[in-house]
């Protein structure tokens, strides 16, 4: 749906692009593989951890 723009994130996220170039004859073919990881879950866990440990609700 919206994968293409993710190229722009390449340097920002921990991804491992592998770019291969064939001989410069028509047409030029570019293969690009991207994987993006988010660290959101860890942040929730941190908040939940502090809630369960520091509040007197548990």
């Amino acid at each position: 749906m919206k994968p293409v723009w993710i190229v722009a994130l390449l340097p920002l996220v921990a991804c491992t692009p592998r770019i291969a170039l064939d001989a410069p004859k028509d047409p030029i073919t570019i293969n690009l593989n991207v994987k993006i990881d988010h660290e959101i879950r860890l942040k929730v866990e941190k908040d939940v951890d502090s809630l369960t440990k520091d509040s007197k609700l548990y």
Partner: peptide, 16 residues
Amino acid sequence: LPVVLNYTHRENVLEL
């Protein structure tokens, strides 16, 4: 110049 871009993308959409 004609260009063919083969692009694969893996990402967790729910986390996005």
